[in-house]
Nucleic acid binder design. Structure first.
Length: 232
DNA sequence: ACCCAGGTGTTTC
DNA sequence: GAAACACATGGG
C-alpha cells in the first residue's frame, strides 16, 4: 500500500466517519463553499443560519434579494464587500442557466461545469472542486492549504502547485467518492485538531509515518501576512 | 494586542 | 509566472 493510503487509513481509524460536507442541501453546500474562503466554519454557519432564518437559501431567493439585505445576513462570514455580491451573482448564474434547478445545474459535463464555476467571481480551484466533489458528485481531490502543508510535512510530496498535488492524489488514492470525500475532511480535522497551535505530535495518528524532522523546513505555518483592518 | 481561518483577485517583482 | 497583498469577521 502506498503512503497516501496509509495516511488515509490511519486518519480514518482515528477520527471515524466525518459525514462531510455538513449541509442540508446541495445549494446550501455551494453557499457554504462560497462563503468559506479565509474564514472559520463557525462564521460561515452563522451566515447560513441567518439566510435560513430569513428563508433566503435558494438560487431564486438570493438572486432576487437586495444587496444590503444579503450583506447584513452573511456579514459574520467576513469580507462583506465581496462575498454578498459573489453569492448573488452566483445565484443569478444558476437561475439564468437552469431556472434555479440546482440538480440540473450540477448535472452537466464535469469538465465544462468546472470551467463554468471557475469563470465566476470568487470561485477558484478549491471552491470549484469542493462543489464538484460534495455537491455534484464528481470524483476530484480537493487541494487546500492544509493538504499542501500536511502532505509536505508528512513526506508525501515536496511541491506546492495545485494541479501537481491534485494529480498526486488522483494517482495514489484508491477508492471512490466516499474515500475522496472523507480524505479531504480527515486532513482538515487533523490540521485543526492535532496540528494547529502547538502541534500535538504525541497524540497524532500519523506519528509513526510522519517524518517531521526531514520536512520541517517546509513547515506547518504559512508565511506571515499583514492583514490590516480598513478603518471606516 | 496579535495571529489566524477548509481562498481569491489584483498588483508587483 | 511566482510572490506579495488586501480583504474582514470572530475566536484563541
Amino acid at each position: 500500500m502506498n503512503k497516501a493510503m496509509q495516511v488515509y487509513d490511519l486518519l480514518s481509524d482515528y477520527f471515524g466517519p466525518t459525514g462531510w460536507w455538513p449541509a442540508e442541501s446541495k445549494f446550501e453546500m455551494m453557499v457554504g463553499a462560497l462563503l468559506m474562503s479565509q474564514t472559520s466554519w463557525r462564521n460561515v454557519e452563522r451566515a447560513i443560519q441567518n439566510l435560513k432564518g430569513r428563508n433566503v437559501l435558494s438560487p431564486v431567493s438570493i438572486a432576487n434579494a437586495g444587496l444590503e439585505t444579503l450583506t447584513r445576513l452573511v456579514r459574520p462570514a467576513g469580507l462583506y464587500r465581496s462575498k454578498p455580491r459573489r453569492l448573488r451573482d452566483f445565484s443569478k448564474h444558476v437561475v439564468s442557466e437552469t431556472g434555479g434547478d440546482v440538480d440540473a445545474f450540477l448535472r452537466r459535463e464535469p469538465r465544462a461545469l468546472r470551467d463554468e464555476l471557475l469563470s465566476l467571481d470568487g470561485v477558484g480551484a478549491e471552491t470549484a472542486d469542493s462543489i464538484l466533489l460534495y455537491a455534484a458528485g464528481v470524483k476530484v481531490f480537493i487541494v487546500d492549504a492544509y493538504t499542501r502543508r500536511i502532505g509536505k510535512r508528512v513526506g508525501l510530496f515536496d511541491f506546492d502547485n495545485y494541479a501537481k498535488v491534485q494529480a498526486f492524489f488522483r494517482k495514489m488514492v484508491v477508492g471512490g467518492m466516499r474515500v475522496y470525500r472523507e480524505y479531504h475532511a480527515l486532513i482538515v480535522k487533523l490540521a485543526k485538531e492535532i496540528c494547529r497551535l502547538r502541534p500535538r505530535c504525541d497524540v497524532c495518528p500519523l506519528a509513526g509515518i510522519c517524518d517531521f524532522a526531514k520536512t520541517e523546513k517546509a513547515g506547518m505555518r504559512p508565511p506571515k501576512k499583514s492583514a490590516r483592518p480598513l478603518r471606516t
